[in-house]
Structure formats: structure tokens, C-alpha cells
Design a protein around this nucleic acid. Structure first.
Length: 552
RNA sequence: GCGUCCGUGGCUCAGUUGGAUAGAGCAACGGCCUUCUAAGCCGUGGGUCGCGUGUUCGAGUCACGCCGGACGCACCA
């Protein structure tokens, strides 16, 4: 049993005793006992606001309640209890318990940060899911960073997770891709062509066409257009998908499942529509089939099958989400760009209409990214409507900086990405600051080795008594709870912040506590402490998909 | 007009199911390298938490209303 549970149980027992003794007269439900790490270390190792919360049901002042609990409570791990503020109970933990915990963490080695298996039915998370018609831009980059970090965090928290990419490889945008590549293909072969009106103007389309010319030359030139388009569509699609996978892989993003929309056409879409029809959720109007989504909170009803018989994007999405539900996940998470928020109501409505529990589908919205260079907003290209690509960003600032910058803000805050700052190799740049802490530790180990100082299997942690050491230890202790919180809230920025604070704590320790040159026992205890610190920094950076260099 | 998100020092942002004197970084100013990487550390100044009302023992946090910003409101994806 961990210390936290032990204290909560002790408070619980104390309250029960006082109720039995008649000191507390219970009227109503007992509030939950929550234990938190106080904002300041003068407030002890843990604190609870239980006395304040229960003032009403006991008809006593928080101070009186706190006094009573303090008098009655007993737990082996508690050194002392203090009452402070408006009725906070602050707990101080015995040193031996603290050092015992430190030893446990030390023995865990690199496994520290991996929480016990939750034995849950897998959670599914779908993210990026950009159309395979162009290159990923920075907005996708933020989604890729956030999604992959959330996957890592959930797994560290002990959840089973399946990550998935939904490839929109059917419908208009693929035809558009085909037409655009076709035009570029013909252009490259010297033909005069009119570029399709809504075609993709990006330079990457020319690259794709070039690749096709390289491989197949003018092989398709003589084909009639209606035969050439499907061939080029397929070639372009493969090329685009590969580029996408390559960029994501370079960005340290891997998916368990690549789900092709084509699988849904036409059978699974027809099935979904059929079920909706049978459930009385579909009606016909103006020659189209409409979903009664207003019944379930949508602003208006939505077309699922167009007048011309072609299913809408929503129809495919309904079939896709139906398929997700049928795969039996405990929860499904979609990470969407904030510009898609208007879409939430209709998808959820459709799931309810199908008889599924819409609450199992959690849709996270990711706010927009603005890039700044030299203090100026980097504008999107007017002609192509494209922003800087993820590939260009990785080249300019590096994968580590790009990922960390995407992750350091809450996903529902708009992100101002300062390209100049991301490139700086100084403490102004949080990525370097954190990585430097890790590299510093590795450097100390090198020096230690040269001085014949080695890690001990059972170091004497009792020697770690300075403020800097205690602060560092406390910060390390917070890590598992931080992972738990980050997982609960799908909040990678918590980890980004945590590892920054941990690095800061280490840098302070570094100033105050020397390792090489001090008495051997103490040196070994400190060496063990920084080993744990390095493991924790590395683990947290891994969750973010940021590397932990051993030298800088 | 409707909807979603945001509004916290000059700038960019945290803020633990409502709790202790609202915290970081950058910028400004002042210190610290004969000793494990100064890519670092220590210190100083700077806030009516957009505005108002309400709920509460207690509100940056919750509710309602305004103001400001971003995004969205297709038989496009």
C-alpha cells in the first residue's frame, strides 16, 4: 500500500472513530477524502481539505474537526500532523518511509513511470487522419504530436490503447488528386492543359507527377482520360500515403491500424444506412436521404445519401464509427482540429441513432497553430492556401523542439509557435534546458567512472538531507500521479511542464550538491539520486516523443 | 445570428474534482565560473486573474449576462 492510501485510510478510520464516539454527528453524506501535494513545502508532504468540506455535515467549524482528526488519527508513516490555514490538515511523512520509497523507485530503474496495468478493454484513439492528397502541415503536426503523446501517456498509465489513422481515400478529394496529378503529369510531358478549378496547387503535386514520369515515362499519355485518371489516382495515392507515413515516422509517430475508407464502400455504408432506416432515423426529402440528427441535439438534419445516390462524407463516417463501436472498445477518442467542431453533434447524434452510447466517443479538439518568425506571423500561401509543412518544420527546428513546442500548451489553447525560440540553443529554449539536465547527469557519470565512483545497489539514502536534495526527491515522487492526471485529462502539457520543473529542480541541486569530491557514502547516495532523476527525465521525454541526449 | 475554444504581470503561458500569500519562462535590472558542461544558478521589480452579477465558509476555477479574439455553421472533406 502506498503512503497516500495509507493516510486516506487513516483519516477515514479517524472519522469513523469520532462518529462512533459521538464527537462527530453526521448529517448527510460524507465528502470524499482527497489528499494532495500542498503548493508549498512548509505545508508538509500531503494535505487534505476534508475538515473544510465536512464542516456542513458535522455542524462544526473546520478547525474543530481538524483538531479532532489530529487527536485521533494514527498511521505508521506519519511523523506529525499540523493544522493550518482555514482548516487544512498537513501531514509530514517519516524520513524512513521517504527513503524506503526512494529505494523502491531506485530498484525499478527505467521502469519507474510505468504504472500498473489497468486491465481495461482497449481504448481506441484516432488522430491526424489527414487526407492522402498532400503533405502534412503544421496543424497536422500538432495533432500528430498530441495524439502520439496521449497514446504514450495512456499506456504509461496502464491502459491498453489502439492508435488508428483513418485514411480518407475515397470520394471527391481523391478524384481531385487524380485530376491535379493528371494535369501536372501532362504538363511535364509538354502538353498544354488547363489546371482543374478546385485542384491541389501545392508543389508536392508536381513532385508526385515527377515521380510518376520517372517511373513510367509517357506510358499513360496515350490513354484516354477516363482510363488514365484511375491509374494516376492509384499511383498518386500510393505516393502520397508513403510520404505521409514517412513524415509521421520521422516525427516519431506510429499507428497500430491504418483504416482505409475504401473498406466502407459501398457495403458497410449501406448496412449502416439500412440499420438507421430500420430504426426509423432516416427519411427522404428532395430526393436525398436525411438523418434525423436534430432528435439527438444536432442543429439540423443531415443528408447521408445525396440526391445523386452518392453517400456524403458523413455517411462514411457513420459507417466508420459504427465499425469502431462493433470492435468493442471501452472508449474511443477522436482528436480533431478545432475547425471540425461543428461536426461533433452530427456524429454523436448518428451514434445515438444507431443505438450506441455516444458518451463512449470522446472528441478532443485541438486549437489552431500560428507560426512566428522574427516576431512576425508566418502567413499561409495565398495561392495554395498552404502553411509550412511538417517536413519543413522538422528541418528548420528539429523534431525534438517541434514536438516539445506542440506539446507544451494545453490542446485547447491556440498555439503561437516561435520558430526563432525553438531554434535557440540556450536556456531560453525549454527543450534544451530539459535535455541539458539529462546530459549533465550523464556527464557526471562519466566523471564518476573516471574517479572510480560506482553506483551502489543499496545506497545510504539517509544521507540526503539538504533542501535541494529533498526538493528533488519530492519532485520525483510526484511523477506517477502526474502521469495519472495527464492520462485522465488527455493533457500532454502536464508532462511537458512536469519534466521542465524536474529539470529545474535538478539544476538547483547541481549547484548545491557536489558528487565528485565528497565523502564516498554521500557521493554514492547522490549518484543514485541523479540516476533516478535521469531515468525520470528520460521517461517523461519519451512520453512526449523527445529524445534525451547523453551529451550536448 | 447560433455554436465551440480562449481572455491571468510588457510578451508567451501554467494554475491539481472550488481552497492556504495567484506561479513559471521570456523581456528589464543586479549578482555568481581556480572545483562534476555558465546550454547553468541565485536575487529584485512588475497582477483590480477581460467586465458585471450570482452560488459558496471560500471563486482565476462554477452559473448567468456583457465585451474582445480565433474557429466553425454544405446534398465539401
Amino acid at each position: 500500500m502506498d503512503v497516500k492510501t495509507e493516510i486516506i485510510n487513516a483519516i477515514n478510520s479517524a472519522v469513523e472513530l469520532s462518529i462512533k464516539a459521538g464527537t462527530f454527528k453526521l448529517e448527510g453524506d460524507l465528502p470524499e477524502i482527497s489528499l494532495e501535494v500542498p503548493p508549498k513545502k512548509e505545508f508538509g508532504d500531503f494535505s487534505t481539505n476534508f475538515a473544510m468540506k465536512s464542516a456542513k455535515i458535522f455542524h462544526m467549524s473546520p478547525k474543530q474537526i481538524a483538531e479532532e482528526i489530529k487527536a485521533v488519527i494514527s498511521a505508521d508513516c506519519i511523523e506529525k500532523v499540523e493544522i493550518a490555514g482555514a482548516g487544512f490538515l498537513n501531514f509530514y511523512i517519516k524520513q524512513e518511509v521517504i527513503f524506503g520509497r526512494l529505494k523502491e523507485i531506485y530498484d525499478m530503474g527505467e521502469k519507474f513511470g510505468q504504472l500498473p496495468d489497468k486491465k481495461n478493454v482497449p481504448i481506441q484513439i484516432e488522430y491526424v487522419s489527414a487526407n492522402p492528397t498532400g503533405l502534412l502541415h503544421v496543424g497536422h503536426g500538432r495533432g500528430a504530436a498530441a495524439g502520439s503523446a496521449i497514446v504514450n501517456i495512456l499506456r504509461a498509465a496502464g491502459y491498453h490503447v489502439v492508435s488508428e489513422y483513418y485514411i480518407n481515400d475515397a470520394g471527391n478529394q481523391m478524384e481531385n488528386l487524380a485530376k491535379s496529378v493528371n494535369a501536372r503529369y501532362l504538363e511535364l510531358l509538354g502538353e498544354k492543359v488547363e489546371f482543374p478549378e478546385n485542384g491541389y496547387h501545392g508543389a508536392d503535386i508536381i513532385d508526385t507527377a515527377k515521380k510518376i514520369v520517372e517511373h513510367y515515362g509517357d506510358k499513360y499519355l496515350e490513354l484516354p482520360e477516363e482510363e488514365r485518371l484511375p491509374v494516376l489516382e492509384n499511383l498518386a495515392y500510393q505516393n502520397k500515403l508513403n510520404e505521409l507515413k514517412k513524415d509521421l515516422s520521422n516525427f516519431r509517430v506510429e499507428f497500430d491500424v491504418w483504416f482505409s475508407e475504401r473498406i466502407l464502400h459501398p457495403q458497410k455504408i449501406n448496412d449502416a444506412v439500412k440499420v438507421l432506416r430500420e430504426r426509423g432515423e432516416i427519411y427522404e426529402k428532395d430526393g436525398a436521404l436525411w438523418l434525423k440528427s436534430t432528435k439527438y441535439g444536432d442543429d439540423k438534419d443531415r443528408v447521408v445519401i445525396r440526391e445523386n445516390g452518392v453517400p456524403t462524407y458523413l455517411a462514411a463516417d457513420i459507417a466508420y464509427h459504427k465499425n469502431k463501436y462493433e470492435r468493442g472498445f471501452s472508449q474511443m477518442i477522436n482528436l480533431w482540429g478545432a475547425d471540425h467542431h461543428g461536426y461533433i453533434a452530427r456524429v454523436k447524434a448518428a451514434m445515438t441513432a444507431l443505438g450506441f452510447d455516444a458518451n463512449k466517443l470522446k472528441i478532443l479538439l485541438l486549437q489552431m497553430v500560428s507560426l512566428y518568425r522574427g516576431g512576425e506571423l508566418v502567413k499561409m500561401s495565398k495561392r495554395t492556401g498552404e502553411s509550412i509543412t511538417l517536413r519543413e518544420l522538422m528541418e528548420e527546428v528539429g523534431t525534438d523542439a517541434a514536438r516539445y513546442f506542440f506539446l507544451m500548451r494545453s490542446i485547447d489553447s491556440q498555439l503561437d509557435f516561435d520558430l526563432d525560440l525553438a531554434k535557440k540553443q540556450s536556456s531560453e529554449n525549454p527543450v534544451y534546458y530539459i535535455q541539458y539536465a539529462h546530459a549533465r547527469i550523464c556527464s557526471i557519470f562519466k566523471q564518476a567512472e573516471e574517479n572510480n565512483l560506482k553506483l551502489d545497489a543499496a545506497p545510504n539514502f539517509n544521507l540526503l538531507t539538504t533542501e535541494a536534495e529533498k526538493d528533488l526527491i519530492n519532485k520525483i515522487f510526484e511523477y506517477p500521479a502526474e502521469i495519472e492526471k495527464a492520462a485522465e485529462e488527455y493533457a500532454p502539457q502536464r508532462i511537458a511542464r512536469y519534466v521542465y520543473d524536474l529539470a529545474a529542480q535538478f539544476h538547483s541541486f547541481y549547484r548545491d550538491c557536489r558528487i565528485i569530491g565528497v565523502e564516498t557514502e554521500l557521493a554514492k547516495a547522490r549518484l543514485a539520486l541523479i540516476k533516478i532523476t535521469a531515468h525520470t527525465i528520460k521517461h517523461a521525454l519519451n512520453l512526449l516523443g523527445v529524445s534525451a541526449p547523453t551529451s550536448m
